[in-house]
Design a protein around this nucleic acid. Structure first.
Length: 195
DNA sequence: GTACAGATTGAG
DNA sequence: TCAATCTGTACT
């Protein structure tokens, strides 16, 4: 079987589009001879410098957030609350501080809980600061694949972003968090009625 | 140099 | 509901 590694052009598009299209794509993390994979089922878009919830709000550049300014397809990873790593992928073009936070993965054969949050996802994939700035189109240890599971619009739910109330009502109300609904109820036989 | 808040999680 | 834990940033 042959899966298509996502090319640069995938990441350099408009951030909201990239955030939605990432749903259903697979992250592949290679550790030695082993591969860890997971399907992306939740993302959030951060579109600085105007986005008050973005680390790059106001156009500020710091040692921590500079990766958000990279051209699309590179990793922006940082520690929150002193404990958890957050995996972001820079999007759009160079000098545009836009990125997509990967919030949750679905891992075949594993509990739903194994990567059901941005911090847990990084723990599962064993990601840390050493991945800062890593290029997803060139890395040998992490990349994204299209496995032909294109998410349909009807499967995507948009909600408010999590944990950014400090950004004020205008920005915290933007529905820039995208979730992929489980695709059970498609054409499969009806399950027994729920109460 | 010190102070402090944070794009979370898991236990209680 | 709350503590864990540490880095970047804004001060002194």
């Amino acid at each position: 079987m042959r899966y298509k590694k996502l090319p640069r052009t995938f990441y350099t598009g408009p951030t909201l589009k990239v955030a939605k299209e990432l749903l259903g794509k697979y992250i592949v993390r290679k550790i030695g001879k082993k591969k860890l994979i997971g399907k992306i089922i939740e993302t959030e878009a951060y579109i600085g410098p105007q986005d008050r919830a973005s680390h790059a709000f106001g156009g500020k550049v710091t040692l921590r957030n500079r990766a958000a300014y990279f051209f699309g397809g590179r990793i922006y990873i940082y520690l929150v609350y002193g404990i958890h790593w957050q995996l972001n992928i820079s999007s759009s073009r160079e000098k545009k501080p836009e990125c997509v936070l990967i919030r949750a993965l679905e891992v075949p054969g594993e509990s739903k809980e194994i990567a059901s949050g941005p911090g847990k996802l990084c723990r599962y994939l064993k990601l840390d600061k050493s991945f800062y700035g890593e290029d997803l189109t060139g890395s040998k240890r992490i990349w994204l694949e299209d496995r032909g599971e294109k998410a349909r619009i009807s499967q995507i739910t948009a909600t408010r972003r999590i944990g950014i109330d400090y950004a004020g009502t205008y920005w915290s109300r933007r529905k820039w968090r995208f979730l992929l609904k489980p695709k059970e109820n498609s054409k499969i036989k009806k399950k027994k009625g729920r109460a």
